[in-house]
């Protein structure tokens, strides 16, 4: 018994020592020193962060962390993912367990201010939407008066639904079911005409229906759910790295820099492209944007080489080639009529 006890104490002590981390100086320096980015993701959200059968994490949120790792190390694999529950995620960031939280987290005022976090940007503009059967012949949410709507109880989803219908003088019959998969089943069995939840989820729900092709997601989005990565307040250098990684992804798409052509683009004559990719000008002077945030000159080239630009990330994870099949919509670049807009790198 004594021997057992000693063994137990020692092994506990050993694990504690193993996991004790250095006290934080600056996050960027710490990340460089430990050699990887610790990224908080979800416990499984298709298209955003999900492990496949070979234990590789894929998704839009995952790729954003890989982009940050590429910017720092030039290697998209230098990330460790911490799957976090919705309750766990903020503590994990606060306590320094993770460096970035990239977990379909909605940018709200309280989180951005009093809770002590900073959002680096909106990697996905989400919002509550409606899915209906094509056979219903409805092409707008404003024609849903009197419909039976499947909705999860006690969520902002339900409140938004009430507000929207009240504001437009319409009525609906609520079919209220707690569990997401039962909700989908109820809709699939025809117990309601409409299914409403966040549109990113709506698309993945559609792919689990018996005949996904028979259903459409209506164009109306009735709430604002800007999802993005966040970091701790009080570490501006790290915040800059994360924020400008996001902007670099957008700027790369805008300039047509892709994973496949990034090497060719370095030879481009376009001064803007040369500046973004960190190529020295005719006089031999390097643009110096990378070193300005503590990274290498070719940080954008590394990002694009590692994960592609924003458009490629979107297409790969949630776009038309995937089971989710989400249209770019508001997530298109500003010049294509969307909301994704990045300040210039100059």
């Amino acid at each position: 018994m004594k021997r057992l006890l000693v063994g137990a104490i020692l092994s506990l002590g050993a694990i504690a020592i193993l996991t004790a981390a250095e006290a934080s100086a600056g996050t960027l320096d710490n990340v460089k020193k430990k050699g990887f980015v610790q990224c908080g993701v979800s416990q499984g959200t298709t298209g955003f962060s999900l492990p496949d059968a070979q234990n590789n994490w894929t998704g839009l949120d995952v790729d954003f962390c890989r982009a940050v790792a590429s910017a720092i190390f030039g290697d998209p694999t230098k990330v460790k993912f911490s799957p976090l529950s919705a309750q766990d995620r903020f503590t994990a960031l606060q306590s320094g367990e993770i460096d970035i939280l990239s977990r379909t987290t909605t940018w709200t005022m309280s989180r951005d201010t009093s809770m002590g976090f900073l959002f680096a940007g909106t990697t996905f503009y989400d919002g509550q939407g409606f899915m209906v059967r094509k056979a219903l012949g409805v092409d707008s949410a404003l024609k849903l008066d009197g419909a039976a709507i499947c909705v999860a109880p006690g969520t902002t989803t339900e409140l938004n639904l009430n507000d929207y219908f009240k504001a437009h003088g319409m009525t609906f019959k609520g079919v209220v079911i707690e569990d997401q998969s039962q909700l989908r089943q109820a809709y699939d069995e025809g117990r309601c005409d409409v299914l409403t939840t966040d549109s990113s989820i709506l698309y993945s729900e559609r792919s689990a229906l018996k005949a996904p092709g028979d259903h459409i997601v209506l164009p109306e989005v009735i709430s604002k759910e800007p999802l993005g990565p966040l970091v701790r307040q009080g570490d501006d250098a790290w915040f800059n790295v994360v924020k400008w990684t996001y902007f670099a992804l957008l700027d790369a798409e805008e300039l047509g820099i892709k994973q496949s052509n990034v090497e060719d683009m370095k030879k481009s004559d376009n001064p803007e492209i040369r500046r973004v990719l960190g190529v020295a000008d005719a006089g031999g002077a390097a643009p110096g944007f990378g070193p300005g945030i503590g990274l290498e000159e070719d940080w954008v080239a590394k990002i694009v080489k590692g994960v592609g630009n924003y458009g490629e990330i979107f297409a790969r994870n949630v776009g038309s080639g995937t089971p989710l099949n989400i249209a770019r919509g508001v997530n298109a670049l500003w010049k294509d009529g969307g909301l994704q807009y990045a300040p210039p790198i100059r």
């Binding site: 416990q43 499984g44 959200t45 298709t46 298209g47 999900l50 492990p51 496949d52 059968a53 911490s82 799957p83 976090l84 529950s85 309750q87 766990d88 994990a92 998969s181 089943q185 699939d188 993945s204 792919s207 689990a208 229906l209 018996k210 995937t322 089971p323 989710l324």
Partner: peptide, 28 residues
Amino acid sequence: VLVVGLFDLLGMAQTGLRDASWATPTTA
């Protein structure tokens, strides 16, 4: 232990169930 971010048998399986590339009415 799923609530503290550890994937036990059930948590692991549920993660797999969320994969849209396997989403069918009978997967779950």
